[in-house]
Simulated scan of single mutants.
Amino acid sequence: MPHVIVKLWPGRSEQQKIRLAEEIVKDVVGILGNGEESVSVAIEEIAPENWQEKVYKPDILDKQKMLYRKPGYLM
């Protein structure tokens, strides 16, 4: 039962977020073999001024062993 959380800066339209969620579900189903009904996707908008505190440090710096794709930026 994969649950995917996408954290991004605000500014994307609802249509973009819906399309992103749909494409993530398609990829999870295609790669992992789960049924669509078992996949959930959440999108959290994080203000740029809060990115380092709410995302970069806790989810990237502090969990580097869990990252399968590291960002190409430093903070």
Rank of each mutant, 00 (worst) to 15 (best):
V55M: 03
V55H: 02
M66N: 15
E44I: 10
L20N: 00
E23D: 05
K26G: 01
D62L: 14
G35Q: 11
W51S: 03
G11Y: 05
V29N: 04
Y73E: 13
K17E: 00
K57L: 14
K26R: 09
G11L: 09
M66S: 14
I24T: 00
E22M: 01
R12D: 03
S40V: 12
L20V: 05
E45Q: 08
K54I: 08
L67R: 07
P48V: 13
P2R: 03
G30C: 01
Q52Y: 04
L20S: 00
L61P: 13
D62C: 12
G33Q: 06
I46W: 04
E45S: 08
E45V: 08
G30D: 06
E53F: 07
K7Q: 10
S13C: 02
S40I: 08
N34P: 06
V41M: 01
I5Q: 08
K65Q: 15
P2M: 03
I5K: 08
Q64R: 15
W51A: 05
G11H: 06
V4T: 01
I60M: 12
L8I: 09
L61F: 11
I24L: 06
H3R: 09
E23R: 09
K54D: 05
G11D: 05
S38V: 11
I18C: 00
N34A: 12
K26Q: 01
Q52D: 11
P2K: 04
W9S: 10
I60F: 09
P2T: 06
P58W: 13
P10C: 09
E14P: 00
V55W: 03
I31S: 11
D59V: 12
L61Y: 14
P48R: 14
I31M: 09
N50K: 15
A42R: 07
V6M: 04
K7A: 02
E22W: 00
P2W: 02
